[in-house]
Design a protein around this nucleic acid. Structure first.
Lengths: 191, 191
DNA sequence: TCAGTTACATAACGGTGTTATAGAACAAGG
DNA sequence: CCTTGTTCTATAACACCGTTATGTAACTGA
């Protein structure tokens, strides 16, 4: 054969971790392949042989982010309120990554979009909670998919506004979020 | 004196229009100063003498977008439902611009942020409608600012998910949006 | 007519993602 | 043990970006 392979799966994981780290600390715009490669102790070629290019690397980072987010939602499974609280907590811990995942920022950067299944999988705990609340007669009767995506959208929007620093600088987002969660629950309650 | 000025306010408006057009058709990532300048029949120097750089140009585009959005909201003033319908309609007509304005995409691109007042001004019709509904005893009693930003967030999230193409490809977003508007109204109704 | 002065298009610069290439690192055969 | 062959990867080259510096075009006043 020939010289041993260094661009292996271990390096792939390293690159993913380094890239996610840089995205979260500097924002996606400040992430360069040369920086990622240097931080992982390799050259930019590794990104091309392991991912195909920058956009694929970022896509993989986003998919990883959805996986981490799903884990967080799974850990909070139970009531709708717990899911909502965990949702904002995860987003605040991974601000730049959240924007990259949900804000459509990735699509605005490069021609690519994350695996469609990743987002759907991450929302499974929410769908389960909706179905459970419906069968308990607590939630309005409507297609689970529809109710879940609507609730998701409402929660996402609040978090998104907070991360985008819309509204007044002195806004008490925790209070807004808390009241809004109550309002969302009331809005979808079975009469 | 010296040679006549060509980098004037008329050219400034042309550059703004061209840039907004390119953002809306190609997305912000594909907008280059060379393209903008060429489409406006000038050179990249114009962007620097009139705006200061690319980030300032994009900021101005965003500010203009907020202005157009505010006009749309003003035209729909009256009920909360009308505002909500107009909100989504404007966003669907200016997809890339909406993402640039609300998605935090701009902050992810360049070091700048739109004038804080622009977003606040655009939300004035919503605040007025909230205050009006409260004094009519229809809406729950709570600080106007808080209720308005919460409703804004909920609506924004739904539109944002739709623009980011989250959820199933065959999702009926119009139906989701319609049901969600009802749920939002119910959630904030005075008991 | 011709300096003098102002304004802008053009060219140059550093840095980006991407691609091409030259050489390094090993296995097998003499 | 050296040579050859093959495979892999770090490096250098390329095109393009935002930005800055510069040379020249355009007009005024004497």
């Amino acid at each position: 054969m020939a010289r041993p392979v260094v661009h292996n799966d271990s390096l792939r994981q390293d690159l993913l971790a380094v890239a996610a780290d840089l995205v979260d600390s500097n924002g996606p715009a400040r992430v360069t392949l040369r920086d990622v490669a240097a931080a992982a102790g390799t050259s930019t070629s590794a990104v091309y042989s392991l991912f195909g290019g920058k956009s694929q690397l970022l896509t993989a980072v986003v998919d990883n982010g959805f996986s981490s987010f799903r884990d967080s939602q799974l850990a909070a499974s139970g009531g709708l309120m717990e899911l909502g609280v965990a949702y904002r907590a995860w987003a605040l811990e991974h601000r730049a990554l959240y924007r990259l995942m949900f804000g459509g920022a990735l699509a605005a950067y490069v021609d690519c979009q994350p695996s469609p299944g990743a987002a759907a999988d991450a929302m499974q705990p929410l769908k389960d909670a909706v179905a459970s609340a419906q069968s308990a007669g607590i939630l309005v009767e409507a297609p689970v998919e529809l109710v879940a995506v609507a609730i998701w959208g409402q929660v996402h929007g609040l978090v998104s506004l907070e991360l985008a620093q819309m509204g007044r600088p002195d806004a008490d987002w925790a209070a807004v979020y808390s009241m809004a969660l109550d309002a969302i629950a009331r809005g979808w309650t079975a009469e």
